[in-house]
Design a protein around this nucleic acid. Structure first.
Lengths: 199, 199
DNA sequence: TTAATATGTGAATATTGATTCACATGAGGC
DNA sequence: GCCTCATGTGAATCAATATTCACATATTAA
């Protein structure tokens, strides 16, 4: 084992990152304290210097994901101010994020992590609801500016927006990569787009 | 414990049913051989008279779900021959099925069950792909009959169809029932409907 | 009625994984 | 350079869980 010692902040990040990657590779069942530690290059018991227990580790993985989701939304909002274009870019960024990290999908939508942990479930729910709220806000903005049909319910549409990606992502995963998410999203977007757009 | 003895066919069904309900109540982590047996009213070791091991039990739970999904599609096809109406009815039937049995969502889309079991993952993929194919066929039919826009890709649209329900179902689950799936689907359907419909 | 067999029981086993703890040691402040 | 403390180690413990097996008993067919 490497006998280097790092301060807790850095190690915590390493552990969270390692855990997320591990879930991508082997699923949640493969996520043991031992496997995470091995991936970081340390011994299982070392983890307890930085996390009270395994649950605390999982919480920090969720924080990691939370950060990435919102970073995506931030970037997109900086790239353009056109609402419909923002949505398109966010869609593509989301696809990229999920493709590059299977673990995200598995962790966010796994009941294993939530069942018996109401606080964590609530935390994830807040995270997803927050993301959807940002999408809904973009849509509202588009309505105010007259590019999007006014009779559409932004909250409803934001969930439909998620519906462009999510089932596709799950199929991609389930089919072990055979199902082409990117292609699906590229074909689905114009259809959704023309439902939103004010002619 | 009840000392009644039942033939293997009946017991197998009882176990599968019990397992599915248990997942709905406590998530996949709560699905132990012991808990399933207790729910059936037997002792853990008794399960091995009917299943080679726990995996065989899980396989039979998947068969159970498979049956229910297709039963839904069959019913709907018997109720009407109008393609767009078939889709609407199937959507509602699907919502009902999922609401009445949280376990389905958890089992079908849980990586826990699939990781390390390529055969089972393939089996579930076949099941979902088969269901989507039926949806795609309804759409093709609608195109042939002239009710649905001909330039829509049925396979693509069938995944979008799934996208009307699936994220909503997951949000419903994640929010512990706060998110209203039925309401979402009722609002999302007309939007999807008008994307498909030939004016 | 009885013999044969399928089904159920309870105890034992083996494995896996989280967690604890006494001890070791590297890094940073003095 | 030395001291102290945070960090890392290795072994031990504890709990959960799947699985096996010898034994018991209900069901069924003859």
């Amino acid at each position: 084992m490497a006998l280097e010692k790092l301060n807790s902040g850095i190690r915590q990040d390493q552990y969270a990152e390692a855990a997320l990657n591990l879930v991508a590779l082997e699923g949640l069942k493969g996520l043991s304290v031992a496997s995470v530690a091995r991936r970081v290059g340390l011994v299982p018991s070392a983890l307890y210097r930085h996390f009270r227990n395994k649950d605390a580790l999982l919480d920090s993985v969720i924080d990691l994901i939370h950060g990435r989701l919102h970073a995506n939304a931030d970037t997109v909002c900086r790239q353009t101010s056109d609402p419909l274009e923002r949505l398109r870019l966010l869609l593509m960024a989301h696809v990229r994020l999920i493709r590059e990290n299977k673990g995200i999908l598995r962790i966010v939508f796994s009941d294993e992590l939530h069942n018996g942990f109401p606080e964590r479930k609530a935390q994830v729910w807040q995270m997803v609801a927050g993301y959807l709220k940002r999408v809904a806000d973009i849509i509202s903005q588009g309505q105010k500016e007259g590019q999007i049909q006014p009779d559409i319910d932004p909250d409803n549409a934001s969930v439909m927006f998620l519906g462009l990606i999510q089932p596709a992502a799950i199929l991609w995963n389930l089919s072990s990569g055979k199902f082409d998410v990117t292609r699906h999203v590229q074909k689905a977007w114009p259809i959704f787009y023309s439902s939103l757009k004010k002619e």
